[in-house]
Design a protein around this nucleic acid. Structure first.
Lengths: 131, 131
DNA sequence: CATCCGTGCATATTTGATATGCACAGTATA
DNA sequence: TATACTGTGCATATCAAATATGCACGGATG
């Protein structure tokens, strides 16, 4: 099992974000089940070589996002309703896409052109290098 | 006529942005006609009390946005593009899609899944009538 | 109370955006 | 071509926000 997180210091992303993303991933993928106790802040800080405060911040974001629940003195646990968050994000996605399509329609783009645009945008983000 | 720009130092917005917005506005409203020569970088820098470099940056953004065209040694001119509005919309679209992709990434969606989602959204809107 | 747990605060460090001066290059025209 | 306008590239200063930290403190549990 991979209870451990693998943070890369070479990654340009901030440490706290890496923690957030990896834990979010594990929860969403069902790797970490509902109500499972997360590694304590100090423990994770030790294994990942970052400060307690940084892990704390990551956990705070995860709680804000509804992925985990944390109780002072007890620990942090995988939220009992991670699906809610998922659905929320999906709603946001739908909404965001809807607005995008609104604009695309104003531009008289065909559906095919819209898909092409999305495709291009994905490629752009895959290779942000410009030299 | 109001060829002059009115920059407020008290405004929280950065100077270069104020320049960009005010010029964009004048062009969109037809206040400044196609091919009209803009005030030179140095002239505008003098009247607005900011550095040449800052005006230069504003003009660079305006050119990037397709609002103006600038030629070294000659000056800057209101773009001849009749589809300025369209270009601006195009930018909005890009921006909107970028945000959507941000969310999709959070959902751990693959690029293929993202495209599928857009496809579904398009189909949804094609026949929203249900009564 | 001993020992785990999370938390609040003040602060250092890093990063990116904004703004600048100056020397240099392109263009027009007399 | 001389001159007097244009815009441009670069190295740098300033500033604000993001990121990361140590330490002292409060809560939970056996």
């Amino acid at each position: 099992m991979s209870d451990d997180l693998f943070l890369s210091a070479t990654d340009k992303k901030p440490m706290y974000l890496q923690i957030v993303e990896q834990i979010t991933s594990k929860v969403l993928l069902g790797d970490w089940p509902t109500n499972m106790a997360l590694p304590s802040i100090r423990e994770l800080a030790a294994t990942t070589k970052v400060s307690v405060i940084t892990v704390k911040r990551a956990y705070a974001e995860l709680e804000q996002a509804g992925v985990i629940v944390t109780q002072a003195g007890r620990g942090s646990f995988v939220s009992a309703q991670p699906d809610l968050q998922l659905q929320l994000l999906q709603q946001q996605l739908q909404q965001q896409l809807d607005q995008a399509i609104d604009i695309a329609k104003q531009l008289q783009l065909t559906e095919e052109q819209i898909l092409d645009t999305v495709q291009q945008q994905l490629e752009l983000r895959r290779e942000p290098r410009r030299e």
